[in-house]
Amino acid sequence: MLTYAIRRLFLSIPTLLFISFVIFMLLQLAPGDPMAQVPLTVPPEVKQKMREALGVGEPALVQYWKWLVQVFWIEPQVAIDAMFGTNWSEGKQRVISWQTRSPVMDIVIQRIPQTLWVVGVAYVVAILIALPIGIYSAYRQYSVFDQAGTFVTMIGFSIPPFFTGPLLIVIFSVQLGWFPSIYDTTHVVNDWASFKEQLQQMIMPVMVLALQITAMLSRYMRASMLDNLGQDYVRTARAKGLSESAVVLVHVLRNSMIPVVTVIALGIPSIFGGAIITENVFKVNGIGQLLLTWLFANDLPGVMTLTFIFAVLIVLFNLIADILYGLLDPRIRYD
């Protein structure tokens, strides 16, 4: 198992390098020019110098190499400096956003808490709702509860977030006036009243996201429970006189959780990746919204670094899901 994990970890390095190279080359084709906003009165040779200062004048491969060095060598040093108060990274060139002219990673770190709050809470809420629904509707297959649950998950599956979002805003903030329609990022939680406000502004985006995730997870949970309920070991467990709750909640549930846990692990990158559409609808300035802003502003270093972070997360959690699968299911051996 350990050798498998280490081998996969090493294999993921070329994968990530290749992905970053593809994204970089895609971005090289971008028509945008970082000097487009500079006034026309600035002489061309000054513009050329400004371009070189941003690192644009050089061949693509040199730029790619510099980006690699900045991300893999200098940024970790900055992180260590920030944690332990050392000064390794002093005077070294970091990845700079063209739009704000400040380090990309600093902005990303500013944005992460909002995304984590909204999307992370939605994910947890969705897991808490989806698992019981999946378990019960599989246990009582074709009952009214199962039919209703399947219908609701199907709807959650089908209605896109850019429709549920405005719909909730119309109902809850325009008609009823219960929740604010815009997420206030500057809101500070320091007492119960402000905590309540924070909850109120989080409810709608969390609902939109949780509906989607619940729909997906409870379908998986139900299918996986159904697979296991028909197995021979369930009959054995019942035959030896175990109580029904022990059969379903211990024997069947433990085995059905194996694929569901991997599905949950595979979904975690989307927590950090942010929900681009939901964040946009509720004006949560998280990572997804940041990516959109940078894309429209043609901020290539920002877009490049952010997309690469997403790719790293996806590869990492794919790996974790595979390893979890092997750890949880003793029948699977990767050798």
Partner: peptide, 9 residues
């Protein structure tokens, strides 16, 4: 492993 929606955009 490619992030789909960012890449689409």
């Amino acid at each position: 492993a490619l992030p789909v929606l960012p890449l689409l955009l």
